[in-house]
Simulated scan of single mutants.
Amino acid sequence: MPTIQNPSVERLRALPKAEVHAHLEGCFESTLLEQWAKQAGVAMPRPADRLFEFEGLADFLHFLDWACGLAATPQRLAELAYSYSQRLAEGGAGYADVIVNPTHWPAWHGRLPAMIDAIDAGLRAAEQDGLPPVGLCVSLLRTQSADAAAELVDALVALKHPRVVALSIDGNEAAAGRTGLRFAQAFRRAGAAGLRRTVHAGESSGPEGVRDAIELLGADRIDHGVRAIEDPELVALLVERQIPLGICPTSNLRLGVYPRIEDHPIERLRRAGVAVSLNTDDPVLLGASLVGEYALCARAFGWSDDDLRALARHSIGASFANADTKARLVQALSAW
């Protein structure tokens, strides 16, 4: 098929696909945060028109804690979850795995079942309104202890909430250092209990974080993983085991992992045979959209229809959707 240098927004939106790397914490609209902050009598970290201007990953993570602190009621959590489903549908995705990290939400500390119920209420309402289904990946923070990880896994296993599809881990790798050994037991227990495992790695750390995610945490999927490109043997391992990477190009550019899209390794990883997908990470806070990610990379790397279809197929395969949802999306993809 011919190369498409400027695929239309409409065609990219119509491309059947999934999103596998997005954080609920990254879906706050500035107007909503300004309203909630005023109601709570809490100071804004910056003026509203510069609210999403971040100085780097550490500043960004600090902002997440502030924003999540405002979502203190079940109604606000449900509203946020519903709005993510709307955003997902606008991007033409038919399913998503969305990440939520309980440590960022102070009003919900010690109230995990109620927190999941509130998010589930918003996602159920969205599905009833015809919006795409969403699975929930509950995440550890990289700076937590092994005991805290065990407690979270115990809670998730006991809860057996049908919305929860995976255990995740996220946070600043560069600040926390290598933490695979600390969380290995918790991830083993989660896997044994039937939870899938997805791991942030190879973003602010080098390729060693990706290797630890595979060898110590049994990752079914890697979130980011882009710096695996620095280790050819690791790239070969990803290909051999077909462990997918949930890549977020705009996030990597905004947070300084790579200076330009042309320097981003997604195309080299893809050509090496790694199963890569495109995702928004923290879409509102970073100004990313799913269609925008596809358009950005298609223009930069000259992707053809076949390339776009392969990316979409990888996104569906990498998702933790049920078999029926995957089959429906694959069938729709074949007709695109």
Rank of each mutant, 00 (worst) to 15 (best):
V226P: 04
A58E: 14
S334W: 09
G122L: 06
S168K: 01
Q242F: 07
V98D: 01
C27T: 15
Q5F: 14
S145L: 12
V138G: 01
S30H: 11
G191P: 03
K38I: 09
T325L: 12
P7R: 02
C297N: 02
Q75K: 10
E151K: 13
L15Y: 07
R309C: 15
H104D: 11
T3R: 14
L152Y: 14
S8E: 05
G302D: 02
T280G: 09
I261F: 07
P244C: 07
E55G: 09
S8G: 06
E262W: 02
D307L: 08
E127T: 09
E29I: 08
L245H: 02
I169G: 01
F320H: 03
T73N: 01
R13D: 08
E79N: 11
L15S: 08
E230G: 03
V276W: 00
I99Y: 14
F63H: 13
L253W: 05
D282N: 06
H224K: 01
A58M: 08
Y82V: 06
R182N: 11
L290E: 00
R309N: 11
L217E: 08
A149N: 02
R313C: 12
E267L: 12
G273N: 09
A228R: 10
F187E: 01
E173P: 07
K326T: 07
Q128W: 00
H161V: 00
I247F: 03
L329Q: 10
L123S: 00
L141N: 14
A146F: 08
L80R: 13
A186F: 04
R13T: 14
Y84E: 07
V210G: 09
L156I: 05
D307C: 10
P249G: 04
S315Y: 06
M115D: 02
A186E: 00
D59A: 01
D306L: 12
G209S: 00
G302C: 08
C297Y: 12
E55Y: 05
M1C: 11
L123P: 00
G122V: 03
H200A: 00
V9W: 13
V20F: 11
S251Y: 10
A71C: 15
